[in-house]
Design a protein around this nucleic acid. Structure first.
Lengths: 181, 181
DNA sequence: ACCTGAACACCGTTCAAGT
DNA sequence: ACCTGAACACCGTTCAAGT
């Protein structure tokens, strides 16, 4: 099984580990993402992963933020604030639906906290500010929108058109309440 | 360790198993709820549980619905629809906060589906109907409110007063959007 | 620093056998 | 029908040793 002896290198890198983790997740879901399965896919011993990742929890954190790189954020200056927020949340929703097994993890950890998550948060706050929702109220609205979007993605067990429409309807209700308040 | 030989009964019942599971969950969280730990707490062999529960997934389903029995539902005829919905969702939110480890499971499974969940759903639909939100729109609003409430409970990592206020603010936004539409 | 081998302390579940 | 004993096929993680 193993073509190497102790001391020989496999040429693993941290990005390669994360890529393999994403691929495993896409194919086998969350239950399929085990350190041992990941090691096998990479052709290394299970514990070799610990040279590149602190532990499984840290690996998942990185994967979570990586996925958010796919979200299309509008230019916070160009778009109409309400339209921009709707587009941003809809894009987030779509990206999350492509990774349904990850969604409970986002909620459990209170969203992602990596660079991608931070960038999206700043765009949202900028859009809210342009709609005169600022300060503590802005942060409240930010959290409400994030919770709503992740929550709905988690709910969409198989993503149907009906649930997508449901998400849009609720998002409009929410935004109309936030911005008119 | 084991005071019994094969063939002797331990006097297990299904409610006793569920009670122990809830207690284990309250004390050690989701990670602590294992079939083996549950068996040890009940003083039986791990596989003895399978005489009372189909598998771990079924056990969790039952626990999930049990928890919802604690939610205080208003009389759908007595309350003002908007106030009744707000009270019902707030009570659900509070109950979920008391069981934070369960919340990701509610989302992952699209909410509970047992008798308690069904009862609450019917009360919500009745209140929405009294606010003239009926048919497909009523079911949309139902899902939006459920997703929002569970999602926010999942987000409240340690439940702070700030997040509770945040939940209330968002809920008002949402209800004002739903009922005025 | 990066990897293997081996081990530790766990999992959920099944199967056969006892009363 | 309800339970034990034993086993199967897994987990994540750590420790020592090799280059």
């Amino acid at each position: 099984m193993s073509t190497r002896t102790p001391g020989q290198r496999a040429g693993l890198t941290r990005p390669a580990v994360l890529d393999a983790a994403r691929a495993l997740l896409a194919r086998d879901g969350l239950a399929g993402l085990t350190m041992r399965a990941l090691a096998e896919r990479l052709g290394v011993a299970p514990n070799a992963l610990y040279s590149h990742v602190e532990n499984k929890s840290g690996l998942v954190d990185d994967v979570l933020d990586d996925v958010l790189a796919e979200v299309e954020a509008p230019d916070p200056e160009a778009a109409d604030p309400a339209d921009g927020l709707h587009a941003l949340m809809a894009s987030t929703h779509a990206v999350l639906l492509a990774h349904p097994d990850l969604v409970p993890l986002y909620l459990h950890r209170g969203g992602a906290n990596g660079p991608n998550a931070q960038r999206l948060g700043e765009v949202m706050l900028a859009l809210l500010a342009r709609a005169d929702v600022t300060g503590p109220e802005g942060r409240e609205a930010l959290r409400v929108l994030i919770v709503y979007t992740i929550g709905f993605a988690a709910f969409a067990q198989p993503p149907t058109e009906e649930l997508k429409a449901n998400f849009d309807a609720g998002l409009r209700w929410l935004l109309s309440g936030i911005i008119r308040s």
